[in-house]
């Protein structure tokens, strides 16, 4: 290849493996190069947990201690969900603002695989920070949990996938209506009732995002139930809810993007 050849002439193409590497590497670079967001997130999460824990001890004493393991697991899932939701919805908003969403749309790959890869990277990133939060919470409270890595990772990941779907939907709404990110961030408080939904009393609530996953995660981390000890129906429900919301959220994002293109407001921030 001579120096005067253009990239077009050289025709050395990048396929999906290169795209996956490029998107994940970009996420990795930003994570390690700008750790302030992640560290800030960890501190804020721990601060609120500290308020919840010490405040709860003062107010309810032994009652809190009895349900502490459940609270820690719920709080872990909440930080995980919060990170995944905020990162994907805010990230799409930033891509719109920067004009990079438009650039991705006019590539041979389109934005779809990039968005999904970014979502996957966000989940991994959020896992790392949430595990730190979990570790500090356990140390702080002197609690122990049954931490089977495979079971915890699989169930927590599948639980968070449904939230990722909500993030995509929120991102789609941002594409259409622009500066409403702060309002959409309020949705994250909805995660608390979802995580603590009474799924045993009301089995239908299992189809809501996080609810069923939260129940399984409690059993895994508090009671020590392993992945293969859950029933096929329970696991199938978890998978169906995870991919149902992920797919649904992505469809909403695609629809919103298409509508923004029709209205001429795609990059009109």
């Amino acid at each position: 290849m001579s120096a005067s050849q253009s990239p077009a002439e050289s025709r050395r193409t990048a396929g999906y493996p290169k795209l996956i590497k490029a998107v994940l590497y970009r996420e990795y670079l930003i994570f390690v190069r700008y750790p302030a967001n992640a560290i800030g997130g960890i501190f804020i999460s721990l601060f609120f947990f500290g308020v919840l824990f010490f405040g709860g001890q003062v107010l309810s004493g032994q009652a809190l201690d009895d349900s502490l393991e459940g609270i820690i697991v719920g709080y872990f899932l909440w930080t995980l969900s919060l990170g995944a939701y905020q990162s994907i919805s805010n990230d799409i908003g930033s891509e719109v603002q920067w004009g990079t969403l438009e650039r991705h749309i006019m590539t041979p790959f389109g934005f779809a695989p990039v968005a999904l890869l970014k979502g996957a990277a966000k989940v991994v990133r959020t896992f790392i920070t949430s595990v730190v939060v979990l570790g500090v919470m356990l140390l702080l409270t002197g609690t122990t949990l049954a931490l089977n890595v495979l079971t915890t990772v699989v169930i927590a990941t599948l639980s968070v996938l449904s939230v990722l779907g909500l993030g995509f939907a929120a991102g789609g709404i941002t594409v259409l209506y622009k500066r409403i990110g702060n309002w959409l961030n309020l949705l994250q408080f909805l995660f608390i009732p979802l995580i603590s939904a009474p799924i045993f009393e009301q089995p239908l609530l299992r189809i809501l995002p996080l609810a069923h996953g939260s129940g399984l995660l409690q059993r895994a981390m508090v009671d020590g139930t392993r992945l293969w000890q859950f029933s096929a129906v329970e696991l199938a429900t978890l998978v169906a809810v995870a991919f149902g919301y992920l797919f649904g959220g992505y469809i909403i994002f695609q629809y919103a993007t298409r509508r923004a293109r029709r209205l001429g407001v795609l990059g009109d921030y």
């Binding site: 253009s6 990239p7 050289s10 290169k18 590497k21 490029a22």
Partner: peptide, 20 residues
């Protein structure tokens, strides 16, 4: 890094066009 990233999403291997 920007050049490499946008080259990849445009379907061109950035290693192959590093000289360009």
């Amino acid at each position: 890094e920007n050049l490499r990233y946008f080259s990849t999403v445009a379907g061109v291997d950035p290693d192959a066009v590093a000289n360009q």
